[in-house]
Amino acid sequence: MQINEQKQGDVMIVAIDDHLDTIAAPAFEQRLLGLIDGGERKLIVDCSALQYVNSAGLKVFLLTAKKIETLGGQLVICSLAASVLMIFEMIGFTRIMKIAPNREEALLALGSSAPA
């Protein structure tokens, strides 16, 4: 699985590719938890390419949110495709997690803004 990182101010933006399943989830989990261990406290996961997620992938989002919030940080998930958003709704994540329609809104939610 391809994971791209981009730092913008104090926000770390992680973009993932199209398939987050049982095979891909462990690497994704390691990467996100590694970023938090490395001191990141404002994290955006950009899901604009994501087309398929199952419970193994959902678990990674939940674990990451749990960990970062315990440390006083924040996770915002942005740019979910309709099919993925439907899964997030079913599982109750849209109620308990911060979801933004796009990267700009995600940055705003973290108190940062896109560069002019």
Partner: peptide
């Protein structure tokens, strides 16, 4: 809880 997400889906 982290468990049980799959069955719920």
């Amino acid at each position: 809880p982290v468990g049980g997400l799959g069955i719920h889906l």
